[in-house]
């Protein structure tokens, strides 16, 4: 009894003379391989060419700033709670007078670390964030020689300043942030 109609019964007929001398079938096989010589290569030559990611790709995290360049994050810790891999740690601090141009709210993250070796890039931190402070970009963590290099500090995560470094900011935004 067949469960699907995809299965093919094995042909157990004895070989015909033409098959038994192999030569003809070998020629056929060689015809197939030589035809592949002229086909388009499937390779993407990595450092020069890059495969484009899909719009919903979840890559390296970025800490967002608002239009004036103030950090969105208030160190509420919801992302760390949401994280199933426990990759996020942070320390909050109170905004001092005179720092209003740096941080949007009265509280900010003095320390913010993501361990990229633990992170599973599920995007739950992005979902959990009430301030739109963290989102997952369209790049991935590059290779590194040591484990330390995979623990991303706040400096590594923060998006470039939208006013002072306009081009870098636009680049870092990518296709992701255009809709908000």
């Amino acid at each position: 009894m067949t469960l699907t109609n995809r299965s093919k019964p094995v042909d157990r007929k004895p070989m015909t003379f033409l098959e038994s001398i192999y030569l003809w079938n070998i020629m056929k096989g060689m015809g197939i391989t030589i035809s592949h010589l002229f086909k388009k290569k499937a390779t993407i030559q990595y450092p020069e060419q890059k495969r484009s990611f899909s719009k919903v790709f979840r890559g390296l995290h970025v800490l967002n700033r608002d239009a004036e360049g103030r950090e969105n994050c208030t160190a509420c810790g919801l992302c760390a709670v949401a994280c199933p891999a426990e990759a996020i740690t942070m320390e909050g601090a109170e905004r001092l007078p005179g720092e209003e141009h740096l941080y949007r709210e009265e509280k900010y993250a003095a320390k913010y670390e993501i361990n990229m070796l633990r992170c599973i890039f599920c995007g739950l931190c992005e979902e959990a964030c009430p301030k739109d402070a963290i989102y997952l970009s369209q790049t991935f963590a590059p290779a590194n020689y040591g484990r330390k290099g995979f623990i991303y500090k706040k400096d590594d995560l923060l998006i470039p300043h939208p006013v002072l470094e306009k081009e870098a900011y636009q680049k870092a935004l990518g296709e992701k942030a255009t809709n908000n």
């Binding site: 391989t33 592949h36 010589l37 086909k39 388009k40 290569k41 499937a42 390779t43």
Partner: peptide
């Protein structure tokens, strides 16, 4: 190289 070409790859380059 030929192995690569026959398998739709580039081979060492």
């Amino acid at each position: 190289k030929v192995a690569g070409w026959l398998q739709d790859r580039h081979g060492p380059n």
